[in-house]
């Protein structure tokens, strides 16, 4: 791959060489390492939850006038130099951290800090604000970061099973009592009792509900989130838990290949329909194989299925509204 092709790929993402967080990421490896630059703005605002309640969040956003939770995800290549510039538009102190790769240190209110680090280790990472832990992270200051192995466009690590597409799935659990305390600068004093559960910042909507199938609202139809493919469209899912609760992911229609847990390659790849996800930055990498559903009779190659957390409290919003929680669609086209 020559430099010209790299620039073309970069232009397609309009992010100066970074692949954005779209589910349909087409990653093309480069022969040469690159300098990848990115600017993020720490902003705050409110996001309306499925029951109509407006909740305070902070995020790593693309502009100083918007709020993005989670922040746009980034994919770079092993050996790249990553230059991040963070502008803190708020009055409170924050930071940008990827454990094992970079720590910006404190970025005080109003400050812009620019720092570089080497993308040294292939894998899936959460970038997040480590100050006032875990509160700033739970408020929404987190996003996905991935390092692709050099010269491999279709592997998680050198020698891993291959994939055709890749996704980030970032889970969060939201206790609005905590968010409101944090908005006022206070520290939460109550037990954490989440009332909203999100996947890439959104909850699912069922048919007939306001926002159903709207990709900006419905986690089941957001293109960064829903799994969609033809038979053979093996999809890598980089799962990151920004939230405070342990979860249990359940896929319908196919078992997944469970490759890593908390950043560590598993000794053997298990086929699972349920994969555990530790709280407070637990991680998992899995491949959803898009094979014909093995128990269908007569056999089928198309269908509409779901992935949901099986700790079913997460399938609610505001204490009810089953089907308005952390779930998404699996579309066999």
């Amino acid at each position: 791959m020559r430099r010209r092709d790299f620039l073309k790929a970069g232009a397609a993402g309009s992010l100066g060489g970074l692949a954005s967080g779209l589910g349909l990421l087409n990653w093309t490896p480069r022969a040469e390492a690159a300098l990848i630059a990115r600017t993020l703005y720490i902003t705050q605002g409110n996001i309306v939850q499925p029951d109509g309640v407006s909740v305070f969040f902070k995020g790593f956003s693309a502009t100083n006038a918007t709020l993005k939770v989670p922040g746009l995800s980034m994919i770079v290549q092993e050996g790249d130099t990553v230059r991040i510039s963070v502008t803190n538009t708020l009055s409170t102190s924050h930071s940008f951290v990827i454990d094992g790769l970079v720590d910006s240190g404190t970025i005080v209110g109003g400050q812009t800090k620019t720092f570089e680090f080497a993308a040294s280790k292939p894998g899936s990472y959460l970038y997040y604000d480590k100050l006032n832990a875990p509160y700033n992270r739970l408020l929404g200051l987190h996003g996905g970061f991935a390092v692709m192995p050099g010269l491999s466009g279709n592997q998680l690590y050198a020698g891993s099973p291959t994939f055709k597409k890749q996704y980030f799935w970032i889970f969060n659990d939201i206790d609005p009592v905590w968010n409101e305390r944090l908005r006022t600068g206070a520290t939460p004093t109550t037990a954490f009792i989440p009332r909203y559960f999100t996947l890439n910042g959104r909850s699912q909507r069922p048919p007939g509900a306001p926002g159903y199938s709207d990709p900006n609202i419905d986690a089941g139809y957001n293109p960064e989130t829903k799994l969609e493919g033809y038979i053979g469209d093996r999809s890598l899912i980089r799962v990151l838990n920004a939230g405070h609760c342990t979860h249990s992911m359940h896929w319908h229609a196919n078992h997944v290949e469970w490759l890593t847990a908390n950043g560590v390659r598993r000794p053997a790849i298990w086929l699972k329909d349920v994969v555990p996800l530790d709280n407070n930055m637990g991680r998992a990498d899995v491949i959803y194989p898009f094979e014909p559903p093995p128990d269908a009779y007569p056999p089928v190659t198309m269908g509409h299925y779901v992935m949901h957390l099986h700790d079913e409290q997460t399938q609610t919003a505001g204490g009810g509204l089953y089907q308005f929680g952390a779930a998404t669609s699996i579309m066999f086209k």
């Binding site: 069922p206 229609a253 093995p294 009779y297 007569p298 269908g303």
Partner: peptide
Amino acid sequence: HGIEPSSENDGVGHTSFDVDGTYTYQWRAS
């Protein structure tokens, strides 16, 4: 749970139906 049939036989209300009457789920144990 863990059996992976066609959508109609997966028993998920919002991607198929909640049973009102009698429905025969058909699947083959692989």
